[in-house]
Design a binder for these strands. Structure first.
Lengths: 125, 125
DNA sequence: CCAATTTATATGACGCGTCATTGAATGACA
DNA sequence: TGTCATTCAATGACGCGTCATATAAATTGG
């Protein structure tokens, strides 16, 4: 019933879960308390900061994160309301949006990224 | 600012996230549709099934999963209401509870575990 | 050029997890 | 023994993610 391979799979899975929760939790709490944004918000900022091109991005971003389309839409909405990001409708295809960091967003991302990388290093060792 | 080591950390982290979400999502949907329980519920069943001893377990279980005490309490509550688990207050320390699978719980666990292991195998390859 | 279909994003209802707190039992110790 | 601190579990308020759907724009086929 429970083969040794099964046990090993379960072990591996629990280890991934533990790492994931520990790391995500640590980052989330740190960003929340120091910058008032959650991990999810940071991850979108991080993705937008990474893509320097001016393509219609909302969609492409979705391909680079395990987030749902719905989740993304709401995170972006929060970031917009917080003044960290701006949404511009795309001329070529008016269904699409492309995103840009505001100055405040860029500054916050710069600071938060340091925290983020440090905690990754600490937790993924 | 973004050292190669930083990039590597971020890559590693995204890979963990992707694996985690893909796997958890797959298992969750499968268990939900076939057995009407979520991944979290299954994980508690699995832990209880594993520990054959009759110790006061609620607390110990908490040490074996990244779940919050609060989360555990609610999951156990759902499992109890679903008739899959029973809570007995502990004689020695009446603050503690210990948990036991009901027959239905044991049966469901047996069936769901097969699904669970198969999906782990599929996703953690 | 007009349906029918498909694609990009937004939104409302809902469930679950988290935080902070509560209640209850136990322990510590003067 | 009485008080104060600690520990275990449950709960209510709240926020976020998910699913199903809505809206709007673009594409496709006749």
């Amino acid at each position: 019933m429970a083969t040794p391979q099964d046990r090993q799979l379960v072990e591996q899975w629990r280890s991934i879960q533990t790492t994931y929760f520990r790391t995500a939790g640590a980052i989330d709490r740190a960003l929340e308390s120091r910058f008032n944004i959650g991990l999810t918000e940071f991850e979108i900022l991080d993705l937008v900061a990474e893509s320097a091109d001016a393509a219609c991005r909302m969609k492409q971003l979705g391909e680079r994160t395990p987030m749902t389309q719905s989740a993304m839409s709401k995170v972006v909405d929060r970031l917009d309301k917080a003044g960290l990001i701006s949404r511009h409708s795309c001329e070529d295809d008016r269904r699409s949006l492309f995103l840009e960091l505001t100055d405040a967003g860029r500054a916050l991302h710069r600071a938060a990224a340091i925290e983020h990388r440090a905690l990754l290093k600490e937790n993924l060792a």
